[in-house]
């Protein structure tokens, strides 16, 4: 099990925003999908640093990202 960020995509889609995507330290980890107008996390690449949570919750007060525990099996599907 490990700790990763998870975007509540329905919440995120309400805003026109890509801010967290631009501040994640990992490449192609926190991505943006224009078809749903939402950010999404490629779990396998996430290191659980919570910088995205700082951006979304602390700076923007939008609270669209939560940290979750996942099992390697769950991440393999992403």
């Amino acid at each position: 099990m490990y700790f990763v960020a998870d975007v509540k995509e329905n919440e995120c889609a309400k805003y026109n925003c890509k801010q967290c995507v631009l501040f994640c330290p990992e490449p192609n980890c926190l991505n943006f999908k224009s078809s749903t107008n939402s950010a999404w996390v490629w779990y396998d690449r996430c290191k659980g640093c919570e910088i995205c949570v700082y951006v979304c919750s602390d700076l923007l007060k939008r609270h669209c990202i939560e940290m979750v525990m996942v099992t390697p099996k769950a991440t393999a599907k992403s």
């Binding site: 890509k18 995507v21 631009l22 501040f23 994640c24 330290p25 990992e26 490449p27 192609n28 926190l30 991505n31 943006f32 224009s34 950010a39 690449r45 290191k47 659980g48 640093c49 919570e50 910088i51």
Partner: peptide, 22 residues
Amino acid sequence: QMGQFKELVEEHPMCAGCYMAY
């Protein structure tokens, strides 16, 4: 447009939250 194209740098072993990596 980062996060919407395939970036040149791949997964790497720098620490979680490292801003040098960013």
